[in-house]
Design a protein around this nucleic acid. Structure first.
Lengths: 191, 191, 191, 191
DNA sequence: AGTTAACCGAGACGGTACGTCGCGTCTTGTT
DNA sequence: AACAAGACGCGACGTACCGTCTCGGTTAACT
């Protein structure tokens, strides 16, 4: 065998896809534009990815690490506020454009429909892990369904971010958590 | 002036758009297919709507009425459960396909980006009104931000429905409300 | 009966058709443009003319008179030179653009295919009449077929004008007639 | 470099254009119909030709050879009669439909306006060559402008064929040449 | 003097073809 | 064998005009 996959081309394609997506939007980021921007033949793209969503998904999955890790100061409420604030800040960057485009295309593109939940899974698992630790420490109700807790916490974020029903106030997540957390925390037995 | 708009054509176009969207999906519903299905020239569509999203938005806005009205039995928790259950059922129908497509296209199409929040506004306002009544009746905390409450309630629905991170259990909204409502309701002074 | 044809509209339409044809060319002179330019409804045009060619033909037929009448100085060769020179000058004006467009559309449009020969007939008949007079005066061969003579004289003009095979020299018709006329004139019996 | 032009497609397109032009006429021969008839994408046509006229011109130029060559029996008058008769016969075939359409479109289409004279040039040059030989042999006047001679000979043909002013008699070219040739031939000095 | 019907402007309508864009596949050398 | 380049068949785009068809409104002949 010889002539294996060209790693340079792979990175150039992913980088070009992100660049275009950030500058001209997800919808007008075409395979042809990516190929041209990356200085690559279309064939090379189609050989390795089935759609533009796949390229961006691969890009996200390989570069996710540092982005929005969970802090652990021992105070679950404070840590959630820190992390969700980071997430909302991230959504306001170029990353947000890509991610929004992927979520949108997941409604019709098969690859995106599988990739989006897969990407989210990691973040959710990290969140669940942090919540589980807090639960173990008695900071959260023992009977709390942690998957559900994630949805209660992140639901409002995606609701405002995707549906754009109102301008998001700066202290949005502070208010959300202030309102929500009492329902998640263990009752303080002060009878 | 003269030569007014043909109301028959207008309705045929909207109906055709919904039919196609339901049967072949939002992404593959083309203007040409709508025109053909409606027995109408493409020009007639482009004369009145700038994109397929606009057609579907107009259809939704003119036929919204009855779909998911708010019950009022006096019990806010029960009413929310009823209504959100109805909404989730609605999302599982053809309407859901259209709505999902519109939300997706709102991430790139200007018209959809305006229409989706406009459509939601009405539903949110109805929800807020019902919540306000409950608040007035002392069933909800007096200092509760009702817009936020809506996001806390519907956020999890859209989170699961759009992001598809896990299969939605049948009693999903029951669990959501059971967990969430204590944080929204007025504290029962039983000291 | 009542409400007869609006003469003002008729003239405005013909005038607009000529104006557009002269300024933007025959091909891009559309019925819609004529209607707009004339400040007239499309219906009014279609009520009275079957195609744009018909409008221009009517315009030519009603305004032909003065354009290229035949002089009669008694010298047939000189008169032909005068007249053909006038014709070629006319072909270089806006009239030429219209006439060329009509001849072109006569290759496909039924109305033009009838109108072009009808318009030409008049000119040819005038030419034939002048030739007949010369023939009667013994200036042309007695056995000359005058229809053919017209084609021999005008053929080269249309050949160069329609087929554009070479730049037309200024003394073109002088040379044509100098070469051709000996074949048409009666032999001078100088035995 | 790579990915060269598909010769099969090229020929299929030209053939389809001729077939359609012959069967439905030049005016109603559309690019879409040609593409469909040739089993080819529209893009492939637009990639290589700017208009349908260009296709037909290329077809004519690449297949011109045999069509109406000049005989050379030594008798210039007889040879001209033979050749012009052939031309008129050719004009009555499908080729005539194409050629007429091209001449018509040359009045508005830039490509046709260049192509028609270019195609004619070859035929004219052949005619001029034959005339020059006759002139060299003393059969034509020494001072005869041969370009002009061509126009005198072919002018009547195009006049009748394009302008359709009268039904063309069967012996048309015989009469034309009988009338015209004396003006072109060298005077026989029999004083 | 009032009625009324044809003509008028405006322009919406169902269509056809336009010329362009991007798709995903393919072919042709080059590295 | 993978690559760049890009031609290919295809489908949809949004536009321009086609010729037909309502719409009121005007207007001129005939009640």
């Amino acid at each position: 065998m010889s002539a294996q996959r060209n790693e340079q081309a792979r990175q150039a394609i992913i980088a070009a896809a992100f660049r275009l997506c950030a500058s001209t939007g997800f919808a007008s980021t075409t395979i042809e534009a990516i190929a041209s921007e990356a200085g690559v033949g279309k064939t090379t793209i189609y050989r390795w990815w089935p759609s533009k969503a796949a390229i961006l998904i691969e890009g996200l999955e390989s570069a996710r690490d540092s982005s929005a890790a969970f802090p652990d100061t021992g105070d679950i409420t404070a840590d959630l506020l820190t992390q969700t604030t980071n997430v909302m800040a991230l959504f306001a960057t170029d990353f947000g454009l890509v991610w929004r485009g992927l979520i949108a295309s997941a409604q019709s593109d098969q690859i995106a429909a599988e990739g989006v939940p897969r990407i989210l899974r990691t973040s959710i698992d990290q969140c669940v892990a942090r919540l589980a630790k807090a639960q173990g420490a008695g900071q959260l109700r023992a009977d709390l369904d942690l998957e559900l807790a994630v949805e209660l916490i992140y639901g409002p974020i995606y609701h405002t971010w995707l549906l754009r029903t109102r301008p998001v106030p700066p202290d949005f997540m502070h208010t959300v958590l202030t309102t929500l957390m009492p329902a998640l925390t263990a009752p303080t037995n002060e009878a």
